[in-house]
């Protein structure tokens, strides 16, 4: 069940549209920089299949210029760490 963090760059003039489009997608939370044409996107999908579908969906957003991942987490890969991060 991956959680991923991205920097997203909108097509010129499409920052607000991209923000709305991303936030409309289930599993996505996006928020904009106040003073630059950049959005931060965090995705949280329940399984591999959904993740793959989401990736496809993101690729097809017309207002999106580029997407670069800065953070990746997958429960499957981090099983042993569960307790350390528990509140």
């Amino acid at each position: 069940m991956p959680i991923l963090g991205y920097i997203t760059i909108p097509q010129s003039g499409a920052k607000d549209r991209l923000l709305a489009e991303l936030n409309d997608i289930e599993f996505c939370e996006a928020f904009p920089a106040e003073n630059a044409d950049i959005l931060v996107l965090v995705t949280d999908t329940p399984d591999k299949e959904t993740e793959e579908q989401l990736q496809q969906q993101l690729k097809n957003i017309p207002s999106l210029e580029s997407l670069s991942m800065t953070f990746g987490y997958n429960d499957e890969l981090h099983k042993g760490e569960h307790d350390d991060n528990e509140a």
Binding site: I3, A33, E34, N35, V40, N85, E86
Partner: peptide, 28 residues
């Protein structure tokens, strides 16, 4: 736990953006 990891994901993206674009802020 999930919210913690999501915060870390967002923090990481913000920190990376800050190194690429000094002065960038994210109030939202």
């Amino acid at each position: 736990r999930r919210s913690f990891i999501k915060s870390a994901a967002a923090t990481s993206a913000i920190a990376t953006a800050a190194t690429l674009f000094p002065g960038i802020t994210f109030a939202g």
